[in-house]
C-alpha cells in the first residue's frame, strides 16, 4: 500500500511539473502547488483504483479457476473500477476548483470521450504490473520452498548414508574385543574399546554436521585402521600421509572413510600379507586431492568399486557440481583411487 501511494504521488508530481512548465510557457499564473492540487483527483484516485485492482486479482484467483472466467471477471472489474474512478474524478475536479456540480454530467461525458482510452491503458498497465508482482512473489516463495525441501532431502540422505557405517563392522569389532577378553589380552581389549569409543563418539556427536576438519576425519580413520589391524594382524600395511596445509580444511563428514573401508575390505580378504592401504591427502591450489592405493584380489567380483565408493560418488554428486572420483589399475593387483574435490572459500 505504501509503495503504491509513493508511486502515484511520484507520478502525480512528475505530471504536475510537466503541466506547470507547459502552463508557464503559455503565460498561466497557476503556481506549482495549485497545479498539483487541481490535478490531484486524476492521479491520487489511482491509489484507490490500484488497491481495487490488487483486491480483484486476489479475489478472481481465488474464485475463478479457469482462465476464461478469470479474464471475464477482470474485464468486469475494470469497467466497474474505471466507472467509479471517472465518476469520482468528475465530481472531485469541480470540488477542488471550488465549482458546483451543475456541469457534472458534461464533465463526466467529456472525461469518457477524451481520457477514458488512456485510463483503460493505465488500468491494464497496473493490472499487468500486479500480475508480474504476484508471479514474482509466487516464484520466490516456490524457490524458497523448493530449497527448503531439497535441503531437508539432502540432509536426510546424508544422514541415511552416514548411518550406513557398516553395522557388521561394529559387531565384528565387539566380537574381536570379546575374543581379546576371553584370550586374557585385556590391554589389547581396552585399546580396541577406546578406539571404538572414539569412532562412536564422532558418529554420535557430529550428528547432523555436514562438514568436518580433515584432521578429525583422519583421526576417525586412524581409529578404524587401528581396530582393523587388531582384527587382521599382518594382513594390512597401512599408512596415512596428510600435508599440514590440509589438516584444518573442511570436508563433507565421513566422505573419506568409505574409501578406506573399501580398501581395508579388499586388503583383509586377500591371502597375501602386508597388503597396502596407503592414503595421501594434499592440496593443489583450490582442490583437495586424495590418493588411495590398495590391493584388490584378481578375481574380485566388485570390480574394484564397492558399495562404499558408489555411496561416496552419490554423496559427492549431491554436494559438488564438479569432482573427480576415479579408479586406476596399477600393477600386481594394486589399484589407485583418486579423489579431487573443490576447497570452499571459507576453508581457504
Amino acid at each position: 500500500m505504501v509503495y503504491q501511494c509513493v508511486f502515484w504521488l511520484a507520478v502525480h508530481a512528475i505530471f504536475t511539473h510537466i503541466q506547470f512548465g507547459s502552463g508557464k510557457a503559455v503565460g498561466s499564473e497557476l503556481s506549482w502547488v495549485r497545479t498539483w492540487y487541481y490535478m490531484s483527483p486524476w492521479f491520487l484516485s489511482w491509489i484507490g483504483v490500484t488497491a481495487g485492482v490488487f483486491f480483484s486479482v486476489d479475489l478472481n484467483n481465488r474464485i475463478y479457476p479457469t482462465p476464461s472466467k478469470r479474464f471475464l471477471a477482470h474485464m468486469l472489474w475494470m469497467v466497474a473500477l474505471l466507472m467509479c474512478y471517472w465518476a469520482f474524478c468528475s465530481a472531485a475536479r469541480n470540488l477542488v476548483r471550488g465549482e458546483d456540480l451543475s456541469n457534472y454530467w458534461s464533465i463526466f461525458t467529456r472525461v469518457l470521450s477524451t481520457s477514458s482510452q488512456l485510463d483503460v491503458l493505465i488500468y491494464l498497465g497496473v493490472l499487468a504490473a500486479i500480475f508480474s508482482l504476484r508471479f514474482y512473489h509466487k516464484s520466490v516463495q516456490e524457490g524458497i520452498e523448493l530449497k527448503r525441501v531439497q535441503h531437508e532431502l539432502t540432509q536426510e540422505q546424508l544422514k541415511n548414508l552416514r548411518s550406513q557405517l557398516n553395522p557388521h563392522f561394529l559387531f565384528n569389532v565387539l566380537n574381536t574385543i570379546a575374543s581379546l577378553v576371553r584370550l586374557k589380552r585385556e590391554k589389547d581389549a581396552v585399546y580396541a574399546l577406546s578406539e571404538l569409543s572414539m569412532m562412536l563418539r564422532k558418529i554420535l556427536e557430529t550428528n547432523n554436521e555436514s562438514s568436518v576438519k580433515i584432521k578429525d576425519e583422519v583421526a576417525f580413520i586412524n581409529s578404524y585402521l587401528a581396530i582393523q589391524k587388531i582384527r587382521f594382524l599382518d594382513k594390512l600395511n597401512t599408512s596415512i600421509s596428510v600435508n599440514t596445509d590440509c589438516l584444518e580444511l573442511q570436508i563433507p563428514n565421513m566422505i573419506l572413510h568409505p574409501l578406506v573401508e573399501n580398501a581395508v575390505q579388499h586388503g583383509s580378504q586377500l591371502e597375501s600379507n602386508q597388503n597396502p592401504v596407503d592414503l595421501k591427502i594434499s592440496r593443489d591450489k583450490d582442490q583437495l586431492k586424495l590418493v588411495m592405493t590398495n590391493k584388490v584380489a584378481k578375481d574380485d567380483t566388485h570390480k574394484g568399486f564397492g558399495i562404499g565408493l558408489t555411496n561416496t560418488r552419490e554423496r559427492l554428486s549431491k554436494i559438488y557440481s564438479h569432482f573427480v572420483l576415479e579408479l586406476y589399475p596399477l600393477e600386481n593387483g594394486i589399484f589407485e583411487t583418486r579423489l579431487a574435490i573443490p576447497i570452499e572459500e571459507q576453508d581457504a
Partner: peptide, 13 residues
C-alpha cells in the same frame, strides 16, 4: 574364519 582371534576364541571354547 579369516580372523585369527575368532579362531583362537573358538579353539579356547
Amino acid at each position: 574364519d579369516d580372523e585369527v582371534l575368532a579362531r583362537e576364541t573358538i579353539k579356547l571354547l
